[in-house]
Design a protein around this nucleic acid. Structure first.
Length: 631
DNA sequence: CTAGGGTTAG
């Protein structure tokens, strides 16, 4: 190559390189690529690498791994950078990547005599091992890393530890972690160090070892936003909602600011606890901080608002989102389902298909639940059939919805038939739905059989015993009730304690059945007496049919007055100014008596009362409930 | 060229 052509070449390269770096679409890249082939400039490994890098890893547009692969295999002598690029692209594409392909590519790289893997190669290779859970391969790779003497590189090291963590080998991860953390001076706690702690914390959270994770979290010298996020999402995903929210609160006391992921992680906990005030704060925080409300954060907000009783605000978020994916629609449809707005759920279900998104299996669960809670049998059936039409195989959850839909509507025979006909074997949830229907429609014979089957299936689940006992109680068969209770005692099965909570000024107050532990218990008790006095003035008689105990009517009535939602209600009434609406949450489903009481109170005290029970919302206003007494 | 995320039958 003489100096002129070299000069031209260098010019051409810098020109093409900048063209590629400004490239915004694969279409555009193809044009440039074609041109490079025509002019022969593609022969320059640096130019070819740029083309490869764009098609494999561009962040401006959808990557095209197939195209990248074609570019790569046409390279006569790919350099180390090219190998690293294609391996990383293979690991990163899609959800779990083409990890096996990436590993195969890595093996080819090892065989190539022109290149050696370097510290940029191994992070991707380790990720591939972790993705497919190949610890043995990971260990071999670990050996190679040692041989190359790059084990101490912070990126290599953190990926190495993460590989062990994701393969469930916490002991191996810990050895590496400890070796490297104790080695470093306390003075220079660098970023790589925080990452190692974070990876370990994440590992313990994944392994369910929350106390170890927390201990490490407390011990670590420096916490980044990721450290907080790992703890928060770990708690939230494992049902430790209070802990997740507590962490989030604590985080705000410190100097690390919540980011996008923090919000997305904590919102499910806020939803489950119904902490609307905090949820609103998070929404405003995102707006104030300029955190983009995309379809992911948007879906979490929709779920939060609808789970906290504010379906209108949920809808506002939904409408405001430019990009909506299936999960966004699901969150909205599920919101309608929870609020008993079955017609809306169904409308949005069809609208979703109109805008070209196909409903997922989750969508069907939500829309079928909506039909079930509203008694829309015909609609539910046709939507269930629609599933077949679009080629979605109903899962047991869908059959569960249908059994519930039919059973609730009193079509017990049809429900039973479906249980026999469905391709999967009935699980406890299906039988519980059916049992609930038997109970609702007073079919004691069928109910008894299902309850017994259920008790055999899961003898330590209190549900079947309670349902059976309630069925007997409603028929006044006290001997049988005592019998069921004896069986429970023998097997040490306990009724799930009812629990309700109410959020006032951002603080969640929790009440159990017959709870007298609240600091304002005296006033609460006084209010409860006042309520029952008011109720009896209207001639209301407690419905004691569903009381679990065989005691006399007076005692039963008082037992009902101490259901946790009533205590929470009394507390809400004495703690808020007149006309304020009250939102109460309950871990179980609301009982018939509490439901009637709430209706009356909404009229007597002129309060809107919103109750979220285990499954859905009840909006009480002026003596009636949004569920139209069908729940 | 490291770590963290949303919807789901009783």
């Amino acid at each position: 190559m003489n100096s002129t052509t070299f000069h031209n070449h260098a010019l051409a390269f810098s020109h093409n390189s900048s063209v590629i770096s400004k490239c915004k679409s694969m279409r555009h890249l193809r044009q440039i690529h074609a041109n490079l082939i025509k002019t022969g400039l593609i022969a320059d490994p640096l130019v070819a690498s740029q083309v490869l890098k764009f098609s494999a890893l561009s962040e401006h547009c959808r990557r095209d791994i197939q195209y990248a692969h074609k570019v790569f295999v046409q390279m006569p002598q790919p350099n180390c950078f090219s190998w690293n690029t294609i391996i990383r692209a293979l690991v990163e594409v899609g959800d779990n990547g083409y990890s096996v392909e990436a590993l195969n590519m890595f093996y080819l790289m090892l065989e190539s005599e022109f290149v050696e893997p370097n510290k940029y190669t191994f992070p991707s290779v380790l990720k591939a091992c972790a993705n497919v859970g190949l610890v043995e391969v990971g260990k071999q790779v670990h050996g190679m890393i040692r041989k190359y003497g790059i084990e101490r590189d912070e990126f290599v090291l953190s990926n190495l530890v993460r590989m062990y963590v994701l393969c469930g080998e916490m002991a191996d991860a810990f050895v590496l972690f400890e070796d490297n953390v104790s080695r470093s001076d306390c003075k220079k706690m660098n970023l790589g160090n925080v990452v190692l702690w974070n990876v370990m914390i994440d590992g313990y959270v994944r392994a369910g070892k929350f106390s170890v994770a927390l201990e490490m979290f407390n011990d670590m010298p420096d916490r980044s936003v990721v450290s907080w996020n790992s703890m928060i999402s770990g708690y939230a995903q494992n049902g430790f909602y209070k802990e997740a929210m507590e962490m989030f609160r604590e985080m705000q006391m410190g100097d690390v600011c919540p980011n996008y992921v923090t919000l997305v992680s904590v919102l499910p906990a806020v939803s489950r606890l119904g902490a609307l005030e905090l949820g609103k704060w998070i929404h405003i925080y995102a707006l104030r901080k300029g955190i983009e409300i995309d379809e992911v954060l948007g879906s979490a907000l929709i779920d939060m608002y609808s789970s906290c009783g504010s379906i209108i605000e949920a809808l506002e978020i939904f409408e405001s989102l430019q990009h909506k994916n299936v999960i966004t629609w699901n969150a909205m449809i599920n919101g309608f389902a929870m609020h008993g707005q079955a017609k809306d759920a169904i409308n949005y279900f069809w609208r979703m298909e109109q805008v070209g998104l196909s409903a997922s299996d989750v969508t069907y669960i939500s829309v079928l639940t909506a039909c079930s809670h509203a008694g829309l049998v015909t609609e539910g059936k046709s939507i269930f059939n629609h599933m077949h039409k679009v080629g979605l195989e109903p899962r047991i959850e869908h059959y569960g919805c249908m059994v519930d839909l039919l059973g609730r509507a009193g079509l017990l025979e049809e429900a039973k038939q479906l249980i026999f006909e469905m391709p999967c074997t009935a699980d406890d949830v299906i039988l519980k739905a059916f049992l609930g229907a038997c109970k609702l429609h007073g079919n004691i014979d069928l109910g008894k059989r299902v309850a017994n089957e259920l008790m055999e299936m899961s003898p330590h689940d209190s549900g079947s015993y309670v349902a059976l006992s309630n069925m007997y109680a409603s028929l006044g068969k006290w001997e049988e009730v005592a019998d069921v209770r004896l069986r429970m005692k023998e097997l040490d099965v306990r009724k799930d304690p009812g629990c309700s909570w109410i959020e006032l000024d951002g603080v969640v107050h929790e009440f159990l059945v017959e709870d007298d532990s609240h600091p304002r218990n005296k006033e609460i008790q006084y209010m409860l007496k006042e309520i029952s006095k008011q109720l009896s003035l209207t001639g209301y008689m407690s419905d004691t049919k569903q009381v679990f105990l065989n005691i006399d009517d007076d005692e039963k009535a008082s037992a009902l007055h101490y259901h946790s939602e009533k205590i929470a209600l009394a507390f809400g009434l004495i703690s808020t100014s007149p006309k304020t609406s009250l939102r109460i949450f309950k871990n179980l489903r609301i009982c018939y008596d509490c439901h009637s009481t709430m209706k009356l109170i909404s009229r007597l005290y002129k309060r809107k009362i919103v109750i979220r029970d285990r499954k859905r919302f009840h909006h009480f206003e002026n003596g009636s409930c949004s569920c139209m007494d069908y729940w």
